[in-house]
């Protein structure tokens, strides 16, 4: 299962972003191979509705779940259609590496 985490920059110690569409990077964690792939937000620089660009990119990468501080209304509709699990983490002082550690525990 692959989980995309919305992050503020590309290092693994960075904090998660409080807004899904406006984040700079996505850290895509694969819990089978335990590897993380960092991609740029494909919609960075686009003004206005960014949701469809991001969701198509994540579907192409077979992502099953996304984590962010909050999701916009339009992107929630798209993620619903794509059957992608949304996880709202209201505490945005948590780092990407801490989330990955938590996701790791569920395999044990």
């Amino acid at each position: 299962m692959k989980t995309a985490i919305a992050a503020q920059n590309s290092s693994s110690e960075t904090l998660i972003d409080k807004h899904f569409g406006k984040c700079s990077y996505f850290h895509i964690y694969d819990d089978e191979s335990q590897t993380t792939e960092v991609i740029d937000n494909p919609a960075r620089g686009i003004k206005g509705c960014k949701g469809d660009v991001i969701v198509n990119e994540l579907i192409a990468k077979n992502v099953n779940a996304v984590i962010a501080g909050d999701f916009g209304t339009k992107v929630q509709q798209l993620l619903n259609q794509g059957q992608i699990q949304m996880i709202i983490h209201p505490d945005t002082r948590v780092s990407v590496s801490e989330i990955i550690e938590l996701l790791n525990h569920k395999n044990k």
Partner: peptide, 21 residues
């Protein structure tokens, strides 16, 4: 852990918190 999440395609009885289980 006070997070909110959806669980598309998962039955109610087997839903677990994706972070802390």
């Amino acid at each position: 852990c006070n997070i909110f999440f959806t669980a598309p395609g998962i039955e109610l009885s087997s839903v677990r918190c994706p972070l802390c289980q």
